[in-house]
Design a binder for these strands. Structure first.
Lengths: 314, 314
DNA sequence: TATCAGCTATAGCTACAGGCTATGGACCAG
DNA sequence: CTGGTCCATAGCCTGTAGCTATAGCTGATA
């Protein structure tokens, strides 16, 4: 979203009208009219309510303005980042289990090489554990799902991931019996399947719960180990649900069935959170930037999606 | 700083060269060359190290890239802000004493009006106390000086402020005797003056200490109350040091002397920090945005400065 | 050391985004 | 009803950021 257009929006909000804002910004009023028109077109809804004596932010406009302001001042102050000292020291990074494989290489390769004085300890676990460790101060920074109420700072949305239903090929008849031959499989169908899932406290279960999935307790194996879940699924003992990034290996093998889940697709938001016990040091900033870069790479490979507005018009 | 230029920088860093990055971005290589040249000109230092086989980030470039990446993804994901629910609930905001006068009006006026369901409690105190309350979870969000080691999240730099030395006019001879008729007064001169300052644990004292100011204990009154400091100074009992924003009243009256302090000017960075005990809710986002807007207004009035790179060439 | 391949910088051109002026039309106050 | 204030639209103009072509540099290799 364009910087100058957002600044225009803020200026109009601040000065209460196009004309006054234009004067303050040192440009002509019609220029602002056009910029705002384009911005409103981009987001697909009105951002300003024009009344006879000027203009005020609509509710959408207000939220956009609130979200944009810190980013814009951040951009304006970027030069000061050059004064920060070089990242150094230890950073303990917690990630959901399946992400460690995507991260390990670049963390101990690129990042280590760039900042030799920066020592990173990578810890993985189910997101419930990660969350807990973060609030306990055992982690400095972590990747989490937004589905859990965290006492830590939810700093930013990193990406969105589709959740996929999967099983060994020999279980194909489970769905065929239900008449669920084509994607997506509705969430309600989970109640009929033999499922292998982690415990309630983990983000995955919460996301499923929020989406209205109610696994039959009689058909549910609760297993808090990704490796174990994989093994059980491989042996055809049931179905499981995991984010796409966790299933790159399974997607490559022909012996698995991977099915889209829910319409609209069932998704979780991946957030990055910073420990309460740690200031935002240059070291953390470097790790944060690296996580962003890594996620961007996964997005490019189609494994994750950019977090999008849920209700977009056009 | 321009968004597309920063994206160019990131792309080159990622792909290891202008040509490959240009291909990835879908544009021609010379375009990138020019954008980067302009960016480097803007920050006044080289950001990329060109070697025969491509280009790599310099240390400055790396830090800029690290700082920019989260901002850029934030901008790219702005549309999702429109989906956030309306801000509501209680937020406890802590600010340094002297800032409450600049804030109170707009907090309980504009912000209250915009979000009727958002209830803000404003707490002020010396920054040492604010810091402590924040880590204890008594505050949700706070404005602080960066000079203290905080266990809270240092989210962002808001602004910089000059520290001014001031006293009642009748104490002018203190400086005249030292031959300090013209600005700025060197920091070392503080050792010779009768000073009235808050306790060691407060940001102001730490900033002075870091700048090499060593007040003579025999000439120092330690007073942890802004009102009391003001009164004492008004009665001519000594000199004090406060940020410019705290001295708007004194600046208007003719009976005070206000002097610049230190060369380069002695400054403190104003940060905004979020409580460990609170997630980044829409309510907090709204307050955060409001603080940014308020600080921008103060900057426009010349009371605060934008945080700038310390060592700028041109 | 000389050569070549691969990369970036420079020069000059073009096009479009974003600025401006002029003007029309809506809205509110008196 | 009328005048004033304000935003939207139309049409023009300029500057920026894109493009192609080419020069110049660098590092690898023979």
């Amino acid at each position: 979203m364009d910087q100058t257009r957002l600044r225009s929006l803020l200026a109009i909000a601040e000065h209460g009208g196009f004309g006054r804002a234009a004067a303050a910004l040192g440009l002509a009023q019609p220029s602002l009219s056009r910029q705002i028109a384009l911005l409103e077109q981009e987001v697909g809804r009105p951002l300003l309510y024009r009344h006879g004596r000027g203009a005020r932010l609509t509710e959408d406009g207000q939220r956009l303005a609130d979200a944009a302001r810190p980013l814009l001042t951040g951009l304006a102050n970027l030069a000061s980042a050059l004064d920060d000292p070089v990242p150094r020291g230890q950073v303990v990074l917690g990630v959901p289990t399946f992400m460690s494989v995507h991260l390990a290489g670049s963390i101990f390769g690129e990042l280590r090489q760039r900042y030799p004085q920066l020592h990173i300890r990578l810890v993985d676990g189910f997101s419930g554990f990660i969350n807990q460790w973060l609030t306990e101060g055992r982690l400095d920074i972590a990747i989490l799902y937004d589905s859990q109420r965290s006492r830590a700072i939810m700093a930013e949305v990193l990406a969105e991931e589709d959740l996929l239903l999967f099983a060994h090929r020999r279980r194909a008849r489970d769905l065929r019996g239900e008449g669920l031959e084509q994607d997506p499989v509705p969430v309600s169908a989970l109640a009929e399947l033999q499922l292998i899932l982690p415990d309630q406290q983990h983000g995955l279960r919460r996301a499923l719960h929020r989406a209205g999935a109610h696994p039959d307790p009689a058909l549910l194996l609760e297993v808090d180990s990704l490796a174990a879940i994989r093994t059980l699924v491989e042996h055809g003992l049931g179905w499981s649900v995991l984010p796409r990034a966790a299933l790159t290996q399974e997607a490559a093998k022909r012996c698995y069935i991977l099915r889209d889940l829910g319409a609209p697709p069932l998704r979780v938001r991946l957030m990055v959170a910073v420990s309460p016990a740690r200031g935002m040091t240059p070291a953390l900033r470097a790790v944060l930037a690296h996580l962003h870069a890594m996620v961007a790479r996964l997005q490019k490979r189609g494994i994750m999606s950019a977090p999008a507005a849920r209700a977009r018009q056009n």
